[in-house]
């Protein structure tokens, strides 16, 4: 019964990976409910009776509110705009790559790959100087542009791979069935392309949402600072208190949208990533 044995081994591995991946999250979650005095207790869970919502209050309605809420607004806005631009451009680009024959097709793809493997940290200093000179420093646009350099290449690659699998013959079938060119595209192709575009959008959003290096280097005030960067500026209630609790609470709050997105759309994401459903 190798299959039974294999199943047990795989389950074991899965559990190990889950623990490995989720332990830090669980730790942050429990820390976010600890009172400042409890932080150094050395225990995993808050001491009994000492569990508190104080940290959440602090960042949502208390002292740190200004810092956190504006950062949240920046994060959402910048990540969304970067995602939309990346997906629109990548869709057009990938469509051309998948459907048209033009010289330089390979170059577009390899350039995209080259850009995406370029280390972020090596561009951030020149970018810092450039942005200060041309006035993009500490603005939304100043972050959206570098985010595009992160999100565009991967979007182009995933979408191009996805579009290549779409049976474009359907467009012609629809035209013979009586559709106009536009109807054929909308009724036969868009429903098939949508899951791929959607998956790409989610991946692009996560990349922009999770960025720290650009966020901390290219902003200086609340006008553009994103959540991952803002966390570094939290201070404790007094200068003798570590802001660990508040940071944990903020970290949990920014994790929630990611988890929600994945849970809500996991079917689309899986079908988008594995495709195949289109064939046949």
């Amino acid at each position: 019964m190798t299959s039974g044995k294999q199943k047990i081994i795989w389950s074991g591995i899965a559990v190990l990976v889950l623990i490995y991946a989720l332990f830090p999250v669980a730790s942050i979650l429990s820390t976010s409910f600890k009172a400042p005095s409890d932080l150094t207790s050395g225990k995993f869970l808050p001491s009994s009776g000492a569990s508190t919502l104080e940290n959440y209050q602090q960042i949502l309605v208390g002292d740190a509110q200004g810092l956190f809420l504006s950062a949240l607004r920046n994060s959402i806005g910048i990540a969304l705009i970067a995602t939309v631009i990346a997906v629109v451009l990548a869709t057009l680009c990938a469509y051309a790559i998948a459907r048209l024959d033009f010289p330089g097709k390979k170059i577009v793809l390899t350039t995209a790959l080259a850009v995406s493997i370029f280390p972020v940290i090596s561009i951030v200093t020149p970018l810092f100087n450039l942005w200060r000179n041309i006035g993009l420093y500490d603005t939304w646009l100043g972050l959206i542009i570098p985010y595009l350099s992160l999100t565009l290449p991967i979007s182009i690659w995933t979408l191009a791979a996805f579009f290549r699998q779409i049976p474009w013959e359907l467009e012609q079938a629809a035209q013979v069935d009586g559709a106009t060119t536009w109807q054929a595209f909308r009724k036969a192709i868009v429903p098939l392309a949508a899951p791929g575009v959607f998956t790409t959008a989610i991946i692009a959003f996560f990349i922009a949402w999770n960025d720290f290096v650009y966020g901390i280097s290219l902003t200086s005030t609340e006008s553009a600072r994103t959540v991952p960067a803002a966390l570094a500026f939290f201070t404790g209630a007094s200068q003798f208190e570590a802001p660990t609790g508040a940071i944990s609470a903020a970290a949990i709050i920014v994790t929630i949208p990611v988890v929600l997105l994945v849970l809500l759309f996991q079917r689309q994401i899986v079908s988008g990533l594995t495709q195949g459903a289109v064939k046949g």
Binding site: P167, E169, Q175, V176, G178, A179, T180, L192, A277
Partner: peptide, 17 residues
């Protein structure tokens, strides 16, 4: 094509998945 009012069966069927 839409103005020719012809119906076609494609080699690999071209069904809308």
């Amino acid at each position: 094509p839409r103005d020719r009012n012809l119906a076609m069966v494609f080699q690999n069927y071209a069904l809308y998945p």
